[in-house]
Structure formats: C-alpha cells, structure tokens
C-alpha cells in the first residue's frame, strides 16, 4: 500500500480515552510531589546519564503520566539514581522516589524480595 505521508500512525497520538491512567495515580499516591512538576526540564539538564544518552526524565514522566508506557521500562533503566535532578528541582519533586516507583510499577521482574 502506498504511504502518502499524511496518515497518522496509531502510536503517534496520545489517546487519552484509552490510555491506562491508573498506574500513574498509584505512583502519585506514593510520591505526591510528582504532581507538582511544572516541566521546567532542570532535571533533564543536570542528569548524569544525559551526558551519554538522550535520557529525559521530564518527558518520560509526562509520557508515564499519560499512560504511554511503551519503551519506558528500558528508558528508566538508564537512570543512575545519582539524585542530581532532585537537588535542582524547583518544585521539590522527589524525583528519585518518582523514578524508583515508576520503574517498579513497570517492571514485573519481581525486583524485590519483599512480599507485595
């Protein structure tokens, strides 16, 4: 079939009607400060991993918030948890808890030895 170039692929839009928003709600209940993010990008700018790879906490957090989980687990694995992002955040978001909990929510590898 000829691709005419104006067809919008399904994955190219964020369909908020079908997106699973409950996962974020659970994470936000654990890390209430996540809701305060105003998307200034300071976290991404100071990120240690960012020096080596296009890792973007702000963007991935937003995608997670909107239920777009595809590829995120792999992205979060890039984080070194060094905590610089937390120090520069003007809104006092606990970015480390945020990424930790997003990572845990996405990963079904049974990371932890604690019974859930």
């Amino acid at each position: 079939m000829t691709n005419w170039g104006f067809h919008i692929a399904k994955s190219r839009i964020i369909d908020m009607d079908t997106a699973d928003l409950g996962v974020y709600r659970k994470v936000a209940a654990k890390v209430p400060s996540a809701k305060l993010c105003l998307m200034c990008g300071a976290c991404t700018a100071s990120c240690t991993a960012r020096n080596h790879t296009p890792f973007n906490l702000r963007k991935n957090h937003l995608l997670f918030r909107h239920g777009q989980f595809k590829g995120l687990a792999k992205e979060f694995d890039k984080c070194m948890l060094c905590g610089k992002c937390r120090l520069v955040c003007p809104r006092g978001v606990n970015t480390r808890a945020l990424i930790y909990n997003m990572r845990m929510a996405l990963d079904n590898l049974n990371y932890t030895r604690i019974k859930k």
Binding site: M39, C40, G41, A42, C43, T44, A45, S46, N56, R58, V88, P90
Partner: peptide, 21 residues
C-alpha cells in the same frame, strides 16, 4: 527550560546546561 548548571569554559566563558523542553 530552567538552567540547572553552569560551568566555566577554558576561555572563561560560561557553559550552560538546560533542557529545551
């Protein structure tokens, strides 16, 4: 984007890091 870090360059200018959000 918010500037989160500033460091000096060799010629004493300023190297600024931010995200173009």
């Amino acid at each position: 984007g918010r500037i989160s870090e500033v460091s000096p360059t060799i010629d004493k200018r300023l190297h600024v890091k931010c995200e173009d959000t």
